[in-house]
């Protein structure tokens, strides 16, 4: 199996703060990878670098073997990289269906309008948003907003999907449904990299976990393995006195 996403020596500095320091990690095709770490560990910076909203100081990003380090965000999307934001940012003046159509129509250039509309209908069904398709995105509940965020990323037909804390704020039952949804997405052939604070979700969903602390990778492996590591416990709980 090939690598869906490969990050090599990625560094980013904001003024005095070294947000990421020579981070290397990879995502296998068909894998669900969790990136965890305490607040300020550099998780969101990593995602912004991956989707191209900010530029790295050093390092390379390979998407399905292709160097995308210097490509603008829209081109990365065209090549198969999808992203859902942590803070949901629907287009409030567009309906749910139209929000998805933006992703479907422009996420893959050359797609016919009919095909895009059919794909949007599928995504609406998959994410349970079909009954709300004609509602304005500005009128949704938080749960629906979260679903829309995920659905819109899915509408771009990604091969690799980046999820930024899409479960935050959900009740346990809702999070369970979301976990099942992400599994279905993976089973349809999408590789998933997700950032998450909720450990039960990480445990349930992740094939593998990468732990970031102070912008560096401090551990990597199965959930059970990294949860045992001293450095990970220290990062989360503080050093033992």
């Amino acid at each position: 199996m090939g690598k869906a996403l490969e990050v090599i020596g990625l560094s980013k500095r904001f003024l005095g703060l070294q947000a990421l320091k020579e981070v290397s990690l990879h995502l296998e095709e068909g894998e669900i990878l969790a990136v965890i770490g305490p607040n300020g560990a550099g998780k969101s910076t990593l995602l912004n670098l991956l989707s191209g909203l900010i530029k790295p100081d050093q390092g390379r990003i390979l998407l399905l073997g292709r160097d995308i380090s210097h490509l603008p965000p829209e081109t990365r999307t065209h090549l198969g990289l999808g992203r859902a934001f942590q803070i949901v940012q629907p287009f409030p003046e567009l309906s749910v269906r139209e929000n998805l159509l933006v992703g479907a129509l422009f996420g893959k250039p050359g797609l016919k309008r009919k095909e895009a509309e059919a794909w949007v209908a599928e995504v609406l069904d998959l994410t349970g948003l079909a009954p709300r398709a004609e509602a304005l995105a500005g009128e949704l509940t938080l749960l629906e907003d979260k679903r829309l965020e995920l659905a819109r990323a899915l509408a771009t037909r990604p091969k690799v999907l980046l999820l930024d804390e899409v479960m935050a704020g959900l009740r346990p039952k809702e999070a369970e449904e979301a976990v099942a949804l992400v599994r279905r997405i993976r089973d349809s052939g999408v590789s998933v990299l997700f950032i998450e604070h909720l450990m039960p979700v990480v445990r349930a969903l992740a094939d593998r976990v990468v732990v970031l602390d102070h912008g560096e990778v401090i551990a990597e492996g199965t959930y059970e393995k990294v949860a045992q590591e001293e450095r990970v416990r220290e990062a989360y709980l503080g050093r033992r006195a």
């Binding site: 065209h78 287009f91 933006v102 819109r152």
Partner: peptide, 15 residues
């Protein structure tokens, strides 16, 4: 409309 409401999100969606 996507460009008007958020350029960053629009770009990530491929616009």
């Amino acid at each position: 409309a996507a460009t008007r409401q958020s350029e960053a999100v629009a770009r990530v969606l491929g616009v």
